[in-house]
Design a protein around this nucleic acid. Structure first.
Length: 294
DNA sequence: ATCCAGGTATGCA
DNA sequence: TGCATACCTGGA
């Protein structure tokens, strides 16, 4: 048994709008991030960068947080940044075409307050390289192993993900041992490539969307979809519109785009939804996931 | 058992 | 360009 962690007192998180427990669950465990686990009695426990926090919804729209004592002073601002707490998602969604798009309006109403995370760029790339044809549960398993075996222990029993520099020193076989399968080669090659390009990844965050995406696609294992996910969840580029099987299904089913290819759907999405297309995508995605039976 | 899951790279017409 | 196929792994 690892020594007990001393957690700080629960504190109310300052968010622009209320967040129901189910919507918080969708934010933390709906496919944006893969390092949050539901802990009985304590809400959610998660790790990002060098930070650890617990989050607990109170059922009245409030979200409370706490952190391991020694980390708490750093977690406070980091958590606000991670959750984009200064951003009013109501204000953002108002810029979406819900007035003329009944399905979008329905999605917005179904997940009030659903927001996009601002995750560290490097680990977003790592997580989504692992995501190819995997379900969320499996992705969580893979990155959990990566953290435990190749990351660093931030608090007793809690590990952060390895940095790309650390990953460059890991053999492909050891990545495969973390259940990465064919993704292991992509991670290994990307690590090697990034090792020779200091600051390259961070620099692309400030490039125009199309340039940043083109850069990301130079990395082995990064195609259209993963590049868009990295830009959307790891670089705050809301114009990115990742098209996966769920969105493809949504656009076919709800927008009548039968037979459209993913690039065509992506273009449609960016034109139809505009500058906040990526936010719309998250609502559509949540809707389809909630209705996967039909 | 067989199939498929939040894709991408590669090989052929 | 356009389309099929391989690639790891584990859960349904």
């Amino acid at each position: 048994m690892p020594p007990r962690i001393q957690w700080t007192e629960w504190q109310l998180l300052a968010l622009p709008e209320p967040l129901a427990p189910s919507v918080l669950a969708e934010v933390l465990d709906g496919g944006q991030a893969f390092r949050w686990t539901q802990t009985p009695g304590h809400g959610w426990e998660g790790v990002w960068g060098n930070h650890i926090a617990r989050l607990r919804p109170d059922g009245a729209g409030g979200v409370w947080w706490c952190a391991p004592g020694p980390l708490a002073s750093a977690v406070a601002p980091a958590l606000a940044e991670y959750l984009a707490a200064s951003v009013s998602v109501t204000q953002l969604t108002d810029g979406l075409p819900w007035r003329s798009d009944p399905h979008l309006a329905r999605c917005l109403a179904a997940f009030p307050g659903l927001r996009l995370l601002r995750q560290p760029l490097g680990e977003t790339l790592l997580c989504f390289l692992c995501s190819a044809t995997k379900q969320i549960v499996q992705i969580r398993q893979m990155v959990g192993l990566l953290a435990r075996r190749h990351g660093r222990e931030l608090a007793p029993g809690i590990f952060r993900l390895p940095t790309w520099e650390e990953l460059a020193a890991v053999r492909e076989d050891d990545l495969r041992a973390c259940r990465l399968g064919f993704r292991a080669r992509y991670v290994a090659q990307t690590a090697r490539l990034l090792a020779g390009r200091a600051g390259w990844l961070e620099a692309l965050a400030s490039l125009p969307y199309a340039d940043a995406k083109a850069r990301l696609r130079e990395l082995p294992g990064v195609g259209d979809k993963i590049a868009d996910c990295v830009l959307l969840f790891g670089a705050g580029r809301l114009e990115a519109f990742p098209v996966d099987v769920w969105i493809l299904k949504a656009m076919t089913l709800r927008y009548g785009l039968d037979g459209w290819t993913p690039p065509q759907v992506a273009h449609f999405g960016r034109v139809h939804f505009g500058a906040q297309a990526g936010l719309a995508q998250q609502y559509l995605f949540a809707w389809e996931r909630a209705h996967r039976a039909d």
